[in-house]
Design a protein around this nucleic acid. Structure first.
Lengths: 149, 149
DNA sequence: TCAATATAGTTGATTAAATCAACTATAATA
DNA sequence: TATTATAGTTGATTTAATCAACTATATTGA
């Protein structure tokens, strides 16, 4: 049991290295940083999320989130819209450029992954997928909420 | 195939969130940052690695690596030793405090993981482990070297 | 052998990006 | 309607990275 956990932890660390903090061969993100990419991804998965949601998703402070959006806005990847329902909230929306870019980067990572797994059986891929899903939902269940102000 | 890849990529992103960039409930690292922890881990896995190895492992520039070691040294987690074989190289060594700390943090993460998986069969854990290993070695094979100066 | 080149690491200056604390504005509540 | 809570922004500061120039040692090859 302990042995398995340590090995799994070890693997997760290494996976993290590949997917968690860096470009792929220097060609990931053009003029956006990795957190900015993560922000774009999150925005693309939600419908007009408020800044607070990004703060939690990215685990930064709210001023940190404000600034990430500032940067994305300046570079033309996203815009702030005022909420009609609640005047305090601003809803983040991707521009066309933002949508295009997040897709492009997603594809680059996915094809890197595809390249790595190109010799695997379909069954193996399905296994990997199921296993990761199980792992993710176990972790998600346990929580680990945002810890920043 | 494409579908699997996207899902897998999605899971990896989420795993990354849990293990790749942040503290666990604010209680991970005390006075060391996440990259510093990664550096400690790497040092603990090698025998007196030179700075260059850390630069590659952490994907930072060599001056970046120098500074990470500076910090670890100042805080008493590691020391530089001169190589006897090659005067240009300095070998990084963990102090007792460093060894203790990296173990402690490893355990904290592993037990977070263990908590999440506590209801799983041993067989399931074994599956997860095998699957992750397969994934990691596939990625490792494909490369993705350091891209910093 | 020794000049040229390569490698390992450090340092000063700069930049990027985060934090904190104080602030404005709106909404919820009692 | 006064109080409190929530969403977001801003100025000042801090952390930690980069780049370019540097020192020191090792390797190479004419």
């Amino acid at each position: 049991m302990k042995r398995y956990l340590c090995d799994i932890y070890e693997s997760l660390h290494e996976l993290t290295w590949y997917f968690g903090c860096q470009d792929i061969n220097g060609e990931c993100c053009g003029d956006i940083s990795f957190v900015e990419y993560r922000a774009l991804r999150k925005i693309s998965q939600e419908t007009n999320p408020p800044i607070k949601l990004l703060k939690d998703a990215l685990n930064v402070t709210k001023s940190g989130a404000t600034r990430i959006i500032d940067r994305l806005e300046t570079k033309g990847y996203a815009v702030r819209r005022h909420s009609h329902k609640d005047g305090r909230i601003c809803c983040i929306e991707l521009t066309e450029k933002g949508k295009f870019t997040v897709e492009e980067i997603n594809n680059r990572y996915a094809s890197f992954l595809g390249e790595s797994l190109k010799d695997k059986e379909l069954q193996t891929l399905s296994n990997i997928n199921n296993t990761l899903n199980a792992l993710v939902s176990a972790l998600r269940q346990q929580g680990l909420g945002s810890i920043r102000k």
